[in-house]
Amino acid sequence: MTAGVGVAVGTPVVEARGIRKSFGHVEALRGADFEARAGEVTALIGDNGAGKSTLVKVLSGVHTADDGELLIDGKPVRPTSPQDIRAHGIETVYQDLALAGDLTPYENVFLGRERRKAGVLGRVGLVDRRTMREETAKVFSDLNVRIKDHKAHVSALSGGQQQSVAITRAAMWASHLVIMDEPTAALGVAQTKSVLALIRRVAESGIGVVLISHNMPDVLEVSDSIQVLRLGQRVAAFRRGEAQVPDLVQAMTSGTSMEETS
């Protein structure tokens, strides 16, 4: 795991400035700003249609912004694909997790990035399963992820364990940022608690985490900062302890804080 290599905790690792994105006559992002810092969980929240999904797709390389600036480590970049973004050390965990159900956890962690055997055997395409298992076991151990059966197909694991595999895979390959889209959706109380604890451990390893969630208590529990989108723009930003659920709802629905309306 290459978490946060050479990046001081609290340093902005990704910044979006004045991002605009339209689809036909629909302006999804209207000069949106956003930033995520190393070693912190940054929540991105907003009502339906606020532009969260579009901004995440710009950050993850799925969409190219029409205007604005995207910076990684303070340097402007203009990615044209998810592969470009991954080359900058940014990984995304989507809601569907993108796991191969008929493969084991370690095979999923290395999916598309398999280790080849040394020498001639590697040149003919044989993979080094032992090394992959060992490296995966180390990352699971570092993040305190407990998988009941490492030899089982991922499809046989619980929803919480599948989410843990997907997050571990992202943390394995990210050096700057992991973006997580609704990671606790459809999970039970115990599984949600486990996944939130894992999100904190990923951030504590030095990687920045972006959390997209509709669950306000989860957001308040795990986040170091919260940024609110409304109608394609950032309308509020809070640090840990500065807001409660009513403040977040007020910002999402009106674009103003409780203090401004009191």
Rank of each mutant, 00 (worst) to 15 (best):
T2V: 10
V195C: 05
A137T: 07
A3R: 04
M180A: 08
N144D: 15
G188N: 07
D96T: 11
E221L: 15
G39C: 13
M1F: 14
A32W: 06
K52Q: 02
R130S: 14
L44V: 09
L44K: 03
I72D: 02
L220F: 00
R239A: 14
R37M: 13
V58A: 01
T80S: 14
G74M: 01
P217V: 03
M216E: 06
A16T: 01
W173T: 01
V41K: 04
R17H: 12
E259C: 07
Q163F: 03
I212Q: 05
S53Y: 00
F238A: 01
V189P: 06
R169P: 00
R30T: 08
V26W: 10
V62W: 14
L220A: 07
K148A: 10
V210D: 03
A3V: 11
M132N: 05
R116H: 09
V178P: 09
V13I: 15
S158I: 14
E242V: 01
T54D: 05
V124W: 08
D67R: 14
G255T: 11
A190F: 11
R116F: 11
G159Q: 13
V154W: 07
V41S: 05
V62G: 10
D224N: 11
M180K: 04
H63A: 05
R37Y: 07
D128Q: 08
S257V: 11
A152I: 12
V145I: 15
S225W: 01
G89Y: 00
S81V: 06
I179N: 04
Q163S: 08
G89C: 00
E260N: 01
G160P: 04
G122I: 01
L121V: 04
L55K: 08
R37Q: 10
L198C: 04
S164K: 12
S205M: 14
I147D: 04
F140T: 10
K148S: 13
K75D: 02
K21C: 10
P76A: 10
M1H: 12
V245C: 09
A174F: 06
Q162M: 15
R130Q: 12
L121M: 06
H214Q: 13
E40V: 13
E91D: 02
G6V: 06
L126A: 11
L229D: 06
T11R: 12
E221R: 12
M258E: 09
E15A: 06
T11G: 09
I72N: 02
D73C: 10
G119I: 08
E15L: 02
S257E: 06
R169Q: 01
M216L: 15
E40I: 12
R240L: 10
L231Y: 08
V209E: 05
H214L: 03
A87P: 01
A170V: 00
Q244F: 04
A65I: 07
R78F: 11
V154S: 14
A170G: 13
S262K: 12
A236P: 02
S60P: 05
P105Q: 06
D181P: 02
F238C: 02
V93S: 03
D33H: 00
T253W: 13
N144R: 13
Q191S: 13
V202T: 09
I90A: 02
